[in-house]
Design a binder for these strands. Structure first.
Lengths: 196, 196
DNA sequence: TAACATACATACAGTATGTATGTAAATCAG
DNA sequence: CTGATTTACATACATACTGTATGTATGTTA
């Protein structure tokens, strides 16, 4: 080979990064692979060597973004020992993480449409949704939450936050909007809290 | 002209209906206009005469679906005089309406991606979201809801329901899932209720 | 060093959108 | 009633993009 393994890996990462930029700013459908490989000083042959097709490239980008946000959420949640506070921290971190750098377009707009709802949901469950669900189930076992369907709760919360992200992303004063959103979320969660 | 006005209108409606079927079953990106016009015994020329482009056709379909669901929601809400019950009725009707006949793919998956988030949100606000927001604001004025951002509440609820629809749609026992979802929604709304 | 694999480049085929142009029928003007 | 114009399409074509097949140089391994 012309290049050693790390060099090749860097090529792949570079393609992912460039693609990520294009996808976030122009949207999946409006991005041609030619633009991407041009910027990477490669040809489409190289791209198709490393990725199955356009969707495959998007999948790689999607995973990267999701992993990034997921880690940010976990990190924030871990800052507290109180289950309830962990949930709140995680929610806020998700809003913050998904809003920034227009991740939301990849995660929430193009993601479902390009990958298909089935694939999208599997990915979402694997990363962000799963940890949320586990947290909610844990809290149910601790009698902190009412004994209603954890699945429904998970999707309810997840959906609420996804939409809130897209709402927030449109405003310049995102800090304020995140506060407003968190107020609502906290109240809603209170409704699910088990009253002792 | 070869045809009178109603005849022309019927051509347009036929195209919208056929397109709707194709979009719901195959998704926007996997539908070629040729398939659609073939089924309508027309050519793409006809389609481009009545619609600006593929996106324009989708927009027409999207509007039709949204209007349909919106009317179903309004109708359900109007069955009660109690504001709180109206909200509950409306929420349930939305779940039912959006779930059926795979409307969800057009409304919630392809919609944002194809139209772009901007356009999608405008449409969504014009139809479904607007009535929800008005209802929430009304309830706030009646001191039924806590005085938190009505915007945030609207998006929160709307997002929750959207995601719930997509979750529910995957199950054969949708009636049960809708019940589960409504349980969670009602609890969450309780958290937003103003305690006298 | 010969066989093979890797990392690309190049060329091409297929398919889809969108546009420009053509045409028959219907309506309208006088 | 007849010529002009508009409507509702069809046809033909230009363009763009994806995906695939093939070629090639370079590195690796036996």
């Amino acid at each position: 080979m012309r290049k050693n393994k790390t060099e090749t890996e860097r090529t792949i990462q570079r393609l992912i990064e460039i693609a990520r930029n294009h996808f976030t700013t122009n949207g999946y459908a409006n991005v041609s692979l030619e633009e991407i490989v041009n910027e990477a000083d490669l040809t489409r042959g190289a791209l198709y060597h490393h990725f199955k097709n356009k969707k495959g490239l998007f999948l790689a980008v999607f995973e990267a973004v999701q992993k990034e946000v997921g880690e940010y959420v976990e990190e924030a949640a871990a800052k507290s020992n109180d289950s309830w506070q962990q949930l709140i921290n995680g929610c806020q971190a998700f809003l913050e993480g998904a809003v920034q750098t227009h991740n939301q377009r990849i995660l929430l707009v193009d993601g479902p449409a390009v990958l298909g709802w089935e694939t999208f949901r599997k990915m979402d469950e694997k990363y962000s949704m799963n940890s949320l669900k586990e947290q909610l189930q844990l809290m149910q076992e601790q009698n902190l939450l009412k004994p209603v369907s954890a699945d429904a709760m998970t999707h309810c919360l997840s959906g609420a936050m996804n939409e809130l992200v897209l709402w927030i992303a449109d405003y310049p004063d995102q800090k304020d909007k995140i506060k407003e959103a968190m107020m609502v979320l906290q109240h809603m969660l209170e409704g699910l809290r088990e009253n002792k």
